[in-house]
Amino acid sequence: MGGFLGFCYRQLTYRPHPLPTSASLKGQTALITGANSGLGLEAARELAAHKLSRLILAVRDASKGEAAKKSILATSPECAVEVWSLDHESYDSIAEFGKRVAALDRIDYALLNAGVKKLEYSASSSTGHELNVQVNHIGTSAVSLAVLPVLRNTARKVNSPTRLTIVSSEGHFWIPFKEQSAPDILKRMDDKETFGTAMQRYYTSKLLNVLWARELASKVSPEEVVINTVNPGFCYSGLHRHESTGIIKIFLWMLGWSSVQGGHCLTDALVQHRDSHGEYFSEQRQVPPSSFVLSPQGQNAQKKIWQETIALLKE
Rank of each mutant, 00 (worst) to 15 (best):
G3C: 03
C8N: 06
Y9C: 13
R10H: 15
T13C: 12
H17Q: 07
P18K: 07
P18Q: 12
L19I: 01
L19E: 03
S22L: 07
A23V: 08
S24Q: 08
S24N: 07
L25Y: 02
L25P: 09
L31S: 12
T33C: 01
N36M: 00
G40V: 01
G40D: 03
A43R: 03
E46G: 01
A48K: 10
R54G: 13
A58Y: 01
V59I: 06
D61G: 00
A62D: 00
S63D: 06
G65L: 03
I72Y: 05
L73N: 12
T75L: 12
E78M: 12
S85V: 11
D87L: 11
D87V: 09
D87T: 07
E89A: 15
Y91V: 15
D92Q: 13
I94W: 10
A95K: 15
E96K: 15
F97I: 11
V101N: 01
A102L: 11
A103S: 14
D105A: 04
I107N: 10
Y109W: 03
N113H: 02
N113P: 00
E120F: 06
Y121D: 02
Y121P: 00
S124P: 03
S125M: 14
S126T: 15
N132P: 01
V133G: 05
V135F: 02
V135L: 02
N136F: 09
I138S: 05
I138W: 09
G139A: 12
P149K: 08
P149C: 07
V150K: 11
V150G: 12
L151D: 04
L151T: 05
T154F: 06
A155T: 13
R156P: 13
R156V: 14
K157N: 13
P161I: 07
F173H: 14
K178S: 13
K178H: 12
E179I: 12
E179T: 11
S181G: 08
A182F: 15
P183Q: 12
K187C: 01
R188L: 13
R188N: 14
M189W: 15
D191I: 12
K192N: 14
E193Q: 12
Y203R: 11
T204S: 15
S205M: 08
K206D: 08
V210H: 02
A213L: 01
A213E: 00
A213M: 02
R214W: 05
L216Y: 09
L216C: 10
S218G: 07
P222S: 09
P222Q: 06
E223N: 11
E224F: 07
V225N: 06
I227E: 04
N228M: 09
C235L: 05
Y236G: 14
L239A: 09
L239G: 08
H240V: 06
I248A: 05
I250M: 11
L252N: 02
M254Y: 10
M254V: 13
L255N: 10
G256I: 10
G256S: 06
S258V: 09
G263A: 04
G263L: 04
H264S: 11
L266C: 04
A269W: 03
V271P: 11
D275S: 13
R285S: 03
P288L: 04
P289E: 04
S290T: 13
N300K: 14
I305E: 05
Q307C: 05
E308L: 13
E308P: 13
I310M: 01
L313M: 04
L313Q: 04
